[in-house]
């Protein structure tokens, strides 16, 4: 007898194994989650889960890493009512998880290509599993670039991992900040300036971009100016996702539902909508 399909609206119980503060002050934190009974629903890089705090509410959060030991990592920014309550939870507590939902980053389609990962702010979190994947399968890809922009040095996420990736000689990691004091020795300027430096083969590159929508708009312009075709640029979009399965319509974006047709889209599908202000 085949197993009954899981009800996508029914959260499963997960235990918070650990909480890690990613920034000073705990504004951004990562949860390592393990299912309470049963196996982990393994997602793909780029997909998201609906995380549900009992009695408080539910939020869509992209997968930040897939633990090898049957755990799942989500990186959350304390930015609203639900996430503020989530920030107060500790290891050992229980949450509900629905998912994984949505489309994934094109890690298979990127094989044999240069890979450009362009992240802004907390947009590094949804791209992190891609970095893990391409580095674990390094021989399948040509040059790999991680171009990461954030507001200031204190806001750099996954600092230890970034240092580790930088220490490898098979990935180009560039980090830039919008503002810095005199002690900062790294790049200053917006992330699009890193794209303009080039070094990649534009016709043979797959770009994956994640960050605030304005930043993505300018990143797309820089990528196209360098010669990367629109169909080879992928963006992760964010809207008010509630049901996560395309029923409720809250995340409608033109003819798309971000939750089920996205969140990852090739830019040539979004291009006609990207500058429509009403969306």
């Amino acid at each position: 007898m085949s197993a009954r399909p899981r009800d996508p609206m029914l959260p499963r119980s997960y235990r918070i194994e650990s909480v890690e503060s990613e920034l000073p002050g705990g504004e951004v934190f990562s949860w390592t989650l393990r299912p309470r009974g049963g196996e982990l629903e393994v997602g793909q890089p780029g997909q998201f889960n609906m995380l549900y705090q009992l009695g408080i509410g539910e939020v869509p959060i992209s997968i930040s890493a897939l633990g090898e030991d049957g755990t799942l990592i989500h990186t959350i920014r304390d930015v609203g009512g639900v996430t503020r309550n989530m920030a107060a939870l500790s290891a050992g507590e229980e949450i509900g998880v629905r998912g994984p939902f949505g489309t994934a980053w094109p890690v298979a389609a990127a094989e044999g290509h240069d890979v450009l990962l362009v992240a802004g702010g907390i947009g590094l979190a949804p791209l992190r599993p891609v970095i893990h994947h391409v580095l674990a399968n390094r021989e399948r890809y040509r040059r790999i670039f991680l171009l990461y922009g954030t507001r200031q040095p204190a806001d750099i996420l996954f600092r230890k991992e970034l240092e580790r990736w930088r220490g490898r000689f098979d990935i180009d990691v560039a980090v830039t900040v919008d503002r810095a004091d005199a002690s900062w020795r790294g790049d200053v300027g917006v992330v699009t300036r890193l794209i303009e430096r080039g070094g990649f083969d534009p016709r043979n590159s797959i770009a994956m971009v994640c960050g605030p929508e304005v930043m993505m708009r300018f990143a797309v312009m820089s990528l196209e100016r360098r010669g990367v075709p629109a169909r080879q640029i992928y963006l992760s979009m964010e809207r008010n996702m509630q049901c996560a399965v395309g029923y409720c319509g809250h995340c409608q974006y033109g003819g798309h539902f971000i939750c089920k047709d996205g969140p990852v889209f090739p830019y040539d599908r979004l291009e006609p909508l990207f500058d429509v202000r009403e969306l």
């Binding site: 930015v79 609203g80 639900v82 996430t83 954030t150 507001r151 699009t192």
Partner: peptide, 20 residues
């Protein structure tokens, strides 16, 4: 100039509005 304008927008600050 475009980059400087973008830099001045504080893109990575908390988004406005009611978020969950």
């Amino acid at each position: 100039l475009q980059a400087a304008r973008l830099q001045s927008l504080d893109l990575y600050g908390n988004p406005a509005g009611d978020l969950p």
